[in-house]
Simulated assay, not measured.
Amino acid sequence: MADPYFFGYGSLVNLATHDFPDPRPATLKGWRRVWRHTDMRPVAFLTAIPDAASEIEGMIAHVPDDDWAALDEREWAYNRVPATQSISHPLTRDVDIAVYAVPKDRENDAPNHHPLLLSYIDVVVQGYLRAFGSDGADRFFATTDGWEAPVLNDRAEPRYPRHQQLKRVETDFVDSRLQRVSAKIVQPA
Rank of each mutant, 00 (worst) to 15 (best):
D67M: 10
Y5I: 06
A61Q: 11
I185F: 10
T47F: 04
F6A: 03
T143M: 10
S119E: 02
P42A: 12
G8I: 10
A44K: 09
P64D: 05
M59P: 03
F7A: 05
V13P: 06
R159D: 00
P90A: 14
A110W: 09
A77D: 11
P103F: 13
T143V: 06
I185H: 02
S11H: 07
N112L: 15
T17D: 04
K167R: 06
D138G: 10
E75R: 10
M59C: 13
D19A: 13
W68C: 02
V95Q: 12
A48H: 00
P50H: 09
P21G: 07
V34N: 05
L117N: 01
V181K: 02
F173W: 07
H62S: 09
L28N: 05
W35A: 04
Q85W: 12
A83H: 06
Y78P: 08
N79P: 00
R36T: 12
D22Q: 11
W76Q: 15
I56K: 02
R41M: 12
T27R: 15
L71F: 14
R33D: 12
A149V: 08
D39A: 12
W68D: 02
D145F: 11
L129H: 07
D72G: 05
V13M: 06
L178H: 06
D109I: 08
N153G: 00
F6G: 00
L118P: 03
T47L: 06
M59H: 07
G127V: 03
L117D: 04
L116N: 04
R177P: 05
G8C: 05
D138Q: 11
D94H: 15
R36Q: 15
A48D: 03
W31I: 01
P188E: 00
M40L: 15
L152D: 02
V95N: 11
I87W: 06
A52T: 12
P23H: 11
G146S: 08
